[in-house]
């Protein structure tokens, strides 16, 4: 196959392999994904268990957990994302160099989980940062986390150097949310301003609460 395009001397034909740039590029990236050492809640304990001897994340080249976001490739959001914490998470995400991946580990990071209704809980980290792989479970077993990381590797395998976003000029950083009276996503500023102004007129918010309670009775 190869010698149609390139002259390979016969003594080298058993030593030189030809492949596409994408394959090499993706193979090297996915074989040494460095997760960020960053635990939020219960799931972090299972993440530690995955890094320990029985499950051994090192088999996948992922044992190098970096505490610094500057050296990390993948952020495992392991636990409940609270409103007080989300500015830090977004900031860490912005500090990670491209290419960067996010794994939402467990029910809480995926959609709020058992704590979804809580007043300080963000219903899923994907409200703020883009997520590549979701892992269900509360907490996911170590096997589930390993499977999730393997799915991420498969995802990386399918990317092409021609289309990946990180060689483009524009940056895709996310504005860091502000801790106001509640968590304030700056991308939704206008919308929030509009709804709050309407509330002042008709007090719809309170009305809604009252109808709900009367309906039950």
């Amino acid at each position: 196959m190869a010698d149609e395009y390139l002259e390979v001397p016969p003594e080298l034909s058993r030593n030189v392999f030809l492949t596409t740039l994408d394959t090499v590029y993706n193979w090297s990236r996915r074989s040494s994904l460095w997760p960020m050492m960053f635990g939020l809640a219960c799931c972090a304990i299972e993440m530690i268990a995955v890094a320990a001897s029985r499950y051994d994340l090192a088999r996948f080249g992922m044992e190098v957990m970096r505490p610094s976001p500057r050296q990390a490739d993948v952020m495992i959001v392991s636990g409940t994302v609270t409103k007080k914490m989300v500015p830090q998470i977004v900031r860490l995400y912005n500090q990670m160099p491209q290419p960067r991946y996010v794994v939402a580990m467990g029910a809480c990071a995926t959609g709020g989980g058992p704590f979804k209704e809580g007043y300080n809980v963000v219903s899923g980290v994907d409200k703020f940062i883009p997520v590549d792989v979701y892992i269900p479970g509360c907490p996911p077993t170590p096997e589930a986390l390993l499977y999730g990381m393997m799915r991420l590797q498969e995802k990386i395998k399918r990317q092409s150097v021609k289309t990946v976003p990180w060689y483009r000029k524009e940056r895709d950083d996310i504005p860091v949310p502000v801790l106001g009276p509640d968590i304030l996503d700056l991308r939704r500023k206008e919308e929030i301003k509009k709804i709050s102004a309407q509330l002042a007129d008709s007090e719809k918010y309170l009305e809604r609460l009252e109808t709900k309670t009367t309906q039950k009775a």
Partner: peptide, 20 residues
């Protein structure tokens, strides 16, 4: 939910004038 998310802001809240 009013804000289509887990949010409660006081009535007439203006994000531009918020000071922590």
């Amino acid at each position: 939910a009013v804000y289509k998310d887990n949010l409660v802001f006081p009535k007439g809240f203006d994000p531009d004038r918020w000071q922590a």
